[in-house]
Simulated assay, not measured.
Amino acid sequence: MESSITQYIRSIELDRKNIPTWSEYPFNLPAIKDLHKLSFHPKVTFIIGENGSGKSTVLESIAVAYGFNAEGGTKNFTFSTKPTHSDLKSYIKVVKGIKKPRNGFFLRAESFYNFATNLDDLDEEMSTEPRLIDYYGGRSLHEQSHGESFFALFQNKFGREGIYVLDEPEAALSPSRQMAMLSRMHDLVKEGSQFIIATHSPIIMAYPNAWIYQINEGFEKVNYEDTEHYQVMRAFLNNKEKMLNILLE
Rank of each mutant, 00 (worst) to 15 (best):
229 H>G: 02
147 G>Q: 06
209 N>F: 13
66 Y>V: 03
206 A>S: 15
55 K>N: 02
118 N>P: 06
84 T>V: 13
36 H>I: 14
95 V>W: 05
95 V>K: 12
133 I>A: 04
188 L>D: 03
79 F>M: 07
150 F>C: 09
101 P>Y: 12
41 H>Q: 05
106 F>R: 01
229 H>V: 02
169 P>I: 12
124 E>G: 00
73 G>F: 08
227 T>D: 09
226 D>P: 01
151 F>K: 10
238 N>A: 11
119 L>P: 02
108 R>S: 14
82 K>V: 08
186 H>N: 15
39 S>I: 09
11 S>E: 12
10 R>I: 07
195 F>S: 06
20 P>T: 04
148 E>K: 11
127 S>V: 03
67 G>M: 05
209 N>V: 08
146 H>K: 12
247 L>P: 04
188 L>S: 03
192 G>C: 08
3 S>L: 05
249 E>S: 07
12 I>K: 02
12 I>D: 00
225 E>A: 09
28 N>S: 13
200 H>R: 14
153 L>P: 02
25 Y>K: 04
165 V>L: 15
51 N>K: 08
184 R>N: 10
83 P>C: 06
141 L>K: 04
209 N>P: 04
40 F>P: 02
66 Y>W: 08
20 P>F: 04
143 E>N: 15
240 K>I: 14
186 H>V: 01
24 E>N: 13
54 G>N: 00
100 K>H: 04
242 K>T: 11
193 S>H: 07
102 R>T: 13
109 A>N: 03
11 S>W: 04
88 L>P: 07
152 A>E: 10
218 G>W: 08
176 S>E: 13
19 I>K: 11
197 I>A: 08
225 E>K: 14
55 K>H: 04
26 P>A: 07
118 N>V: 00
153 L>G: 05
158 F>V: 01
93 K>P: 00
157 K>D: 09
195 F>P: 03
69 N>W: 00
